[in-house]
Every structure is written in C-alpha cells, then in structure tokens.
C-alpha cells in the first residue's frame, strides 16, 4: 500500500513534505537536470529583495567539519528581474514555488509581499527575518520579538497567500520569537536559518571569510535544528517546517517526529543535487516498509 505523503502548510497542499531550502536551489531551473521537480513537495527560491543585490566580497564560503559557512550577502536578481526572467520557468512546473524574500525596513517587506502576492506562479511566501533593520540601528529583525512581529504584521496585511516566517536560530529564546510571529499572523514557521559562525586561517592570522562571520549549515547543525523544531512545535499551533542539516530520509523523519509538518533540504543539494527527490522517495519507502498509512500520523509523534 502506498502511504499518503501529502501535508498542508496553511492553504498550501503539498504532495509530500520535502521542499528545497532558499539559497541552495537557485530558482529551481538550475537543478531541473538532476531532480524531477514534480517528485518533491515544493521548492523555495533564492531570497529576493526590491532592488538587485550584489552580495559580499569573496571568499564567501568555507567548508568546516560536517558543514559549511557562507556569507553570500543575499546576492539576488531583485524582484523585477525575478518576474521577467525566473517566473516563466515556475509556470512550467507543476510544483508549488515558494518565494523567499527580505527587506531592510518593515515597509520594504510589505511592498515585496504585496508584489509577490500579485504573481500567480508564486504559491506561497517565505519571509526571511534574519536581516538588519536599518531604521533601528541595524538590529536583526529576527532577534527581537517586537521587530519580528512588526515585519510579519506588515507582510500579513499585504498578502492573502500562505505566509511562512523563517526564524533565525541566533536568539536566546526561539519560542518567544515563534510565538511573536504566530501572533502577528504567520501561517507557518520555518525553523531554522543558518547559525552564525566563523573560521580562522591560523598561519595568515586572518578570518577565512571576507565578511569575517558567516552562516553555518549542513549536518553539523542538525542537533540544534532538531531541538529548536521540537521546542517551537510544542509552543505554537501553526505548522512548523524543519530545516537544518537534513541529508537523508531518516534525518527528515526525525524532524517530523520532533513536530515538523514538512522539511526543507539545503546544503545537501550541493553535495548531491538529487538529494531532495531521494529524501522524498526514501521517506515514502520507510513508511511503506512499516505499514504506516499516513505521514501525518508521525508529525510530533515523538514518545517519552
């Protein structure tokens, strides 16, 4: 018997719970040679801003044990080029495309949300709040519950589409952040973005990354991500999307047990461009082998 792998995130219906994570899958097209996009639940685009952004100087990436640090600096084509050059491809794929975006003021966030709301090919919005608020001394929106709530409320007012808020793990109390975003109108929460880290070149006595610090991703962050998903899922009513170091179907299923309704695969797509599809298929096989009829029965089913 084929297990039912479908899940719902807000009004979004997914054929299975596996999505690709923002910034690790381009705009979808880059991977179409390696992944049957119609075998995954959804894909999330590279983070978009109002204006194109050039990003940081190099080196932008360095591998660390079991992970990698990146300081890309949110390089992206901007919303206008996205509509012109990238949206036509989204139309050709029968899989929901989720637009990830960010701004530097709540107004910018709202404007982007409103413009993305107008694009029929965009199935849902994922708002990245791990950005500095230029109006308030550069404090990162996602590290202050009031700041985060103001951004989410502004986006909520600008879109009827499913609004997913992607939380930063670089906070003392992730539950407080999650509740603030839920209270401001988020339909779902993505947990987690990268953890801030750094690498040093001893002989040169310099930081390896031009930006000095960068975001850690990959298997190294999985235990932290699992813990945060578990904490958040117990504290909110909206669905949680688990992200962080997922390399295999078993990794993904652990996130589901911890309370995630769906998962996103990030760095794994660099290592193995077919990872998201393989994980989706592996999850289904795992359920089938154990006679589990519905993936939804595993959400938050952690015992003890």
């Amino acid at each position: 018997m084929k297990p039912d792998m479908s899940v719902e995130i807000g009004s979004l219906k997914l054929r299975n719970p596996v999505m690709t994570a923002s910034g690790t899958f381009g705009y979808g097209e880059e991977f179409s040679q390696y992944v049957d996009l119609e075998k995954i639940g959804a894909f999330v685009t590279k983070g978009l801003s109002l204006k194109p952004r050039a990003g940081n100087p190099t080196p932008r990436i360095v591998e660390t044990p079991g992970g990698m640090l990146n300081a890309i600096g949110l390089q992206n084509v901007g919303i206008d080029a996205f509509i012109q050059k990238k949206v036509p491809f989204l139309r050709s794929v029968n899989t929901p495309a989720i637009a990830n975006f960010f701004g530097y003021t709540p107004d910018e966030y709202a404007e982007l949300a409103s413009r993305l709301d107008d694009i029929p090919e965009v199935a849902a919005l994922e708002v990245n709040i791990s950005c500095p608020n230029v109006k308030q001394g550069g404090i990162v929106f996602g590290t202050d519950p009031n700041c985060a709530a103001s951004v989410v409320a502004a986006c909520r007012a600008a879109t009827k589409k499913t609004l997913i808020v992607k939380l930063s793990p670089n906070v003392t109390d992730i539950v407080e952040m999650a509740q603030a975003c839920e209270g401001a109108g988020a339909d779902a929460l993505s947990v987690i973005n990268t953890l801030t880290g750094m690498a040093i070149d001893l002989e040169r006595r310099r930081p390896v990354l031009a930006n000095i610090t960068g975001g850690l991703s990959g298997p190294a962050i999985k235990p932290v991500a699992l813990r945060m998903v578990w904490q958040v899922a117990r504290a909110v009513k909206v669905p949680v999307i688990g992200i962080g170091g997922i390399m295999s179907a078993t990794d993904a299923l652990e996130f589901i047990l911890a309370g995630a309704t769906a998962v996103q695969v990030g760095t794994a797509s660099f290592v193995n461009p077919g990872a998201a599809q393989e994980i989706a298929e592996g999850m289904e096989q795992w359920l089938a082998a154990r006679g589990i009829a519905d993936i939804k029965s595993l959400i938050g089913a952690l015992e003890g």
Partner: peptide
C-alpha cells in the same frame, strides 16, 4: 578558480 560548493550556479560562492 573560485571556492565552489555547488558548481551549478546555485550557491553564489564562486564569484569573481
């Protein structure tokens, strides 16, 4: 050369 994570234009790590 550039420091590459994906080799297919997705990570934007390798730019010059």
């Amino acid at each position: 050369e550039g420091y590459m994570a994906c080799g297919m234009g997705a990570c934007l790590g390798c730019v010059c």
